[in-house]
Design a protein around this nucleic acid. Structure first.
Lengths: 205, 205
DNA sequence: TGTTGTGAAGGCGTTCACAGCC
DNA sequence: GGCTGTGAACGCCTTCACAACA
């Protein structure tokens, strides 16, 4: 069965809600409660989960602790991931200070930057390296994920460089969205300006 | 006819591509060229546009300059917007330095922050104000859009405060996604951690 | 009674394919 | 020949509704 990207994103949301419910001391919860906080229908939640197994109990609902573990396993966040940051401009520097990444299990293990004045230094213990070292460093460190926060003009060449270096997943902060990744790889776009323009459209109509 | 949010986001993408084509000196382009760079089918592009009018010429394609103006008008970016930044932490500080906003026509006109040590100061000429002043300042300045970059725990109360202050569009950087905005308002979520988890899922499967 | 898991139905967005036009 | 605009077909995802079960 095919699993939609929307379904996967919702699993992340359910996971956050379940952790919240755990902090509130809940043991078992029906789909209705979680779905309500997530802003989706109970049927959507149950369908999302049923693609991966039968985790609930009739008449009771889902065990909070167990479901957290199941979703963590599904999403692959029952481990830590090493991530490369490509581009150490304003946005890159902010992202590296952004605690939510490490809280979710993602550790920035290397920074790659074009500006030779920065190369060789480090930021809070994370080395700032030349782009040329990307293949060797990513292989040695087992880095499969990259955050790309470079100027838009060089986005495509940076994507290529990443995939050549063995990167298999890119979180793209540039506004270039048409790049086709290799078959085994994926690019997800986080485009702030485009979202702002959607809000502008909404206000106008 | 209903216009999907996906269609609106694509219009933003087409707009960027058309500006690029204009820099390259192109006068007229067929849908195929723009669609290719955007990573969508020509039919999708034509349908997206046809919801707003007939802008193309048979046998020729679209006039680049004219189509840029049309899309700018559709999206409401043929003017400048004043935006409030709510939350002046690491992420908020990065976003305010992020040039792409002002390049797209969005000016951060006020910063609202809870920490009383920061209130009363300014950042590059933008005043840092108490949350309590949000209603009066937003009304006086004509601010209808807000970027929310506060800790997740206070997200919902901040959303409420924004809508009470007359804000009608929120770009939400917290990971709380279930909030229901008032009927005339909208929240768009930009969730970095959730996207990272989607990449993690993709790599695991 | 309360809740899950799921086949069936429905709704929505994309793609196809072609008439119409230059 | 080339291209747009669009009704119709298709496919996907969500929602419904109910059998099964504690």
């Amino acid at each position: 069965m095919g699993i939609s990207s929307g379904s996967i994103e919702r699993l992340s949301i359910y996971l956050r809600i379940l952790r919240e419910l755990r902090r509130e001391g809940k043991i078992d919860v029906p789909s209705r409660i979680v779905a309500e906080r997530a802003g989706v229908s109970p049927a959507t939640l149950r369908k999302d989960l049923s693609a991966f197994g039968s985790f609930g109990k009739n008449g009771i609902g889902y065990n909070v602790d167990q479901l957290i573990e199941e979703i963590e396993s599904i999403l692959g966040v029952d481990r830590r991931w090493k991530v490369a940051l490509v581009g150490f401009g304003k946005l890159g520097q902010a992202l590296i200070r952004y605690k939510a990444f490490s809280e979710c299990g993602f550790d920035i293990a290397a920074i790659f930057e074009k500006d030779s004045a920065l190369i060789g230094g480090d930021f809070e213990g994370i080395p700032i390296l030349s782009n040329k070292k990307m293949p060797s460093v990513c292989e040695r460190e087992g880095i499969l994920l990259a955050i790309v926060a470079v100027p838009s003009e060089v986005a495509y060449e940076v994507f290529e460089r990443c995939f050549d270096a063995g990167i298999r997943g890119i979180l793209n902060f540039t506004d270039r969205t048409g790049f086709s990744p290799p078959p085994h790889a994926k690019i997800l776009n986080v485009n702030i300006s485009i979202e702002m323009e959607s809000l502008s459209y909404f206000l106008k109509h």
